[in-house]
Simulated scan of single mutants.
Amino acid sequence: MKREMDKFDRINRRQFMQTGAKVAAGALFATLGASKLFGSAKIPALTPVNSVVLNNGLKMPVLGFGTLYLGGSEGEKCVAEAISVGYRLIDTATIYNNEDAVGAGIRRSGIDREKLFVTSKVWVDDSGYEKTKKAFDTSLNKLGLDYLDLYLIHRPRGDVKGSWKAMEELYKEGKIRAIGVSNFEPHQLRDLMESGEIMPTVNQIEAHAFFHQPESLEFLKKNNIQMEAWSPFAQGRNELFYNDVLAEIGKKYNKTNAQVSLRWHYQRGIVTIPRTSQKAHMVENLNIFDFELSDEDMRLITKLDLNTTQFPEWD
């Protein structure tokens, strides 16, 4: 799986840059050949990232860095590089088995802890009150941090209510700045809201050009819960980086399919956490705040919705 993902990063995603295009720190993109993708060489480093305000008043960056499959020395390097080019939201999870690498990357970056927004998640095997408390402590120790900005229940399985009670207590103790969930459907989230004391701040779910989740988005907005999209590029599945519709839209703004995808999420009010191991792509993904998709662009992307997950093996 990791080998396949690296292949997407190196090849399938990018065949769009012109020879000599400048990236952060003076690095250059090489010519990668002709393709359907239309890109821009205009990629500034340290692009400022806007924030949303969660229902508890905490500010959260609208664009972050995902770390799935990024472990060991590579993970450490990627996290440090992501921070160096401007990312402040860093997302990890117990099941990713890379919290130690993420923590090492944070330390390597030299950034002040207060400037970061770090998320982790409790896995199904650790569901329940006591196990969640223990899992949280383990995550903090691996990350080398004193607190988390956001802690999520990774999937709606096991003793969800026990986990939520533990997270509520950790939140009240100041060890977590915000608590939320991941992969919850509206009815599952509604049940948790009715039984819990503290309102979830975030629901991190699958969302991308081929799976729009409009019902979930509407429910979350109605209840003032922030939607966050994992795999906003569908990990390159269904040839997202070659999609003609996204490419034609991008051509108008001199942007790539990836940038159009992230901008589409942003205009829908969704936080995203794209993952890449390539510094040039990290910088490219930040460069989405200098253009705006038209209503017609948004309508065309709506037609791409297949209304089904692109990750059936994860259900």
Rank of each mutant, 00 (worst) to 15 (best):
H265G: 02
D146A: 08
A209P: 05
P186V: 14
T67Y: 02
A45K: 13
N285Q: 05
S73Y: 07
R268L: 05
G144D: 06
S40L: 01
I179W: 03
H281W: 06
G33N: 11
S127E: 09
V79I: 10
V181E: 04
E81C: 02
E173C: 08
D191R: 12
Q213D: 04
A234P: 07
M199D: 11
P156M: 10
F136E: 06
S127K: 09
T138C: 11
L170S: 06
E81A: 12
N50G: 04
K77A: 03
I288P: 10
G72I: 00
I301S: 02
G26R: 10
S109L: 08
R3M: 09
V49F: 04
G128L: 05
N285K: 08
T119K: 04
A280H: 13
D149S: 08
A80P: 01
D315L: 15
K77V: 02
S40I: 01
E292D: 10
R155Q: 13
V283G: 09
I83D: 00
D244K: 14
D315N: 15
T67A: 05
I106L: 11
E99K: 12
K251M: 05
G110M: 09
L140D: 06
K252T: 03
L189Y: 05
A229P: 15
T272Y: 04
R155C: 08
T256Q: 10
A247Y: 00
V118R: 05
E185D: 09
Y242E: 14
T308S: 14
D305T: 12
G269H: 03
D244L: 12
L63G: 01
Q235M: 15
K142R: 14
L192S: 11
Q278A: 04
N243I: 09
T67D: 04
K161W: 04
V62L: 12
F29M: 14
P186G: 10
F210I: 11
H212R: 13
I176W: 02
R14G: 00
M282T: 01
E194V: 13
F233I: 02
E74P: 05
N97S: 11
R157P: 01
E239F: 12
I301Y: 06
L304M: 12
S195A: 15
K133Y: 10
T302V: 03
T276R: 05
K252H: 05
A209D: 03
G57Y: 07
R14A: 00
W164T: 05
H208R: 10
G196R: 11
I111R: 02
I249K: 00
A166Y: 01
E206Q: 13
